[in-house]
Design a binder for these strands. Structure first.
Lengths: 212, 212
DNA sequence: CACTAAGTTGAGGACAGCCTCAACTAGGCC
DNA sequence: GGCCTAGTTGAGGCTGTCCTCAACTTAGTG
């Protein structure tokens, strides 16, 4: 995270911070596709400076959302600390969807095929925690046993488009649809599923958008 | 549909057909955002001719998908003809999702905020039939009573993004996720939902993308 | 203060897609 | 066949975004 390679001059650091802050705000409102020139303009800095600090758009996205893996980890830990396995799962999903709903950029990032620069590190730990949230709920007999990590991606995708479509009209509508999904995830609701889950390697390809 | 205003010269009709066919194919593979010049090139026709026949992109989209409302109507009618209300509902949803999965253009059209030229006519009749499919299933006690037409939109959105992400990796994965959703829609699975459904007027705004 | 390396600037080239219009071509009716 | 209008053509202007680079400015050190 803070593995600073070079000390960075004071004004340079300030400009960098201004850029990240501007990007954070614009991403949140307009999604990840904002024009880079608009970001630099909002930051009060030249477009050349933006490219100096962030050669690719992905680098900027990374800088803006570098703390999110941490946030997700905290949410996951809090969920695991909750006594009831189902409540923990619900809490986790609600918080994640909330993040999506409150930040169009994060919504894009988490659901879309975006070339991410640093795909690993704290992410992996987050995945482990998520996996434990599911396992615990399955073992407790509250989550259907055929539910897998990969199926969580579906929830993310579903919420992504819903928020995109309804966010400006009914910002909380995703809660209703998450409720529907949750009712389908309960152990008692389970009917056999037509098709096996996607495997991790396929999921990765789906996420990064390998159009093979 | 065939309310021909002017007779249209023979070569003009041929070119129009070529354009629609080219658009159909390119939309299906690449979605609704293909470059219009690529469409005209594929059709073997000048870009000027395309603009002559279809002043807006929406007009072309309309021409390509004008038959879809009809198709949906037929699917709905077939579903209503099925003796079991639940089977009918499932059949309807599976067929609709299939349409989405098999045509990226239709997937865009049905789920995204696309300015449509002709929003009405056979569509309304389709809506009525869909409404009857839901009502019948609710009355039969198999579909949860708090499920509304507007909630079907969620299913569409969810499938849209899922297909977008996984279509090239696992073209049938949507069936699994539809299965999960269906288990959440069953009357027996229902738990109270956090938030009321979106109303038709709001839904319309969400569909057309009024960013108010 | 002076000097230099680090950092900034913004005009401008490259590219992609949209759309127009004046010049051209060819159906189809007499 | 000849004519006229419907239809076609495609170069070119417009817009918006990406990205570069040579000239300039400034932080910070001795």
């Amino acid at each position: 995270m803070s593995s600073r390679t070079k000390p960075l001059r004071r004004d340079a650091q300030r400009n960098r911070d201004l850029l990240v802050e501007a990007a954070r705000q614009l991403f949140a409102v307009h999604g990840l596709d904002v024009a880079l020139e608009e970001i630099s303009r909002t930051a009060g800095v030249s477009i050349g400076t933006l490219y100096n600090h962030f050669p690719n758009r992905a680098d900027l996205v990374d800088a803006v959302f570098s703390d999110r893996a941490q946030t997700v980890r905290q949410i996951a830990e809090h969920s695991l600390a909750m006594p009831d396995a189902w409540d923990g799962l619900v809490h986790f999903l609600e918080r994640i969807c909330e993040l999506q709903a409150n930040d169009r950029g994060y919504n894009d990032l988490i659901s879309r095929r975006v070339p991410q620069a640093t795909p690993t590190e704290a992410h992996l730990h987050g995945f482990q925690l998520m996996s434990r949230i599911l396992d615990r709920a399955i073992e407790a007999g509250v989550l259907r046993p055929d539910f897998t990590m990969a199926d969580l991606a579906f929830l993310t995708w579903a919420t992504a488009r819903t928020v995109e479509a309804t966010g400006s009209v009914r910002p909380d509508l995703w809660r209703r649809h998450l409720g529907l999904m949750l009712d389908g995830m309960r152990a008692g609701a389970a009917h056999p599923l037509a098709v096996p889950p996607i495997n991790p390697e396929e999921l990765n390809r789906a996420m990064t958008g390998d159009c093979g």
